[in-house]
């Protein structure tokens, strides 16, 4: 029993490397971001009405184009404080692999700046 327990814990302690590649940026956005940034990416997520700092709208092209991909990657990985923004944006670097964060950055670019819709 103890061996099983140790094995189970060891398995959990390992990074979830798996299907990082399987989860698309859109899927990851739905899972990790929409609660604050909204199901439409407009910053009006279900938590936003009670937040002291409003989450960024990801569909505002001008604002999003002012941020480089590197900045977006950094804020997802290290949290809002890493770019002198709100600590309400948490650091996701332990939860998400670098590949997953890159997929999220690519999805943010889709949301803000895809040719149809938000221009």
């Amino acid at each position: 029993m103890k061996a099983i327990t140790v094995a189970a814990i060891s398995a959990l302690l390992s990074p979830l490397s798996h299907g990082a590649d399987d989860a698309s940026g859109e899927r990851l956005y739905t899972m990790y971001c929409t609660q604050c940034h909204g199901m439409h990416g407009n910053g009006l997520g279900v938590n936003s009405s009670r937040m002291s700092v409003q989450p960024r709208s990801h569909i505002e092209r001008e604002e999003m184009m002012a941020r480089s991909d590197e900045e977006l990657f950094k804020v997802i990985q290290q949290g809002g404080k890493s770019i002198d923004k709100s600590n309400l944006m948490p650091a996701w670097g332990d939860n998400l692999s670098e590949e997953e964060i890159s997929a999220l950055v690519a999805h943010l670019r889709q949301l803000c700046c895809k040719e149809s819709g938000n221009e």
Binding site: A11, L16, S17, H18, G19, A20, D22, A23, R27, M31
Partner: peptide, 11 residues
């Protein structure tokens, strides 16, 4: 089986 299912497990 988190390792096999990946993020889809959550969904």
């Amino acid at each position: 089986d988190y390792e096999t299912q990946g993020r889809e497990e959550r969904f």
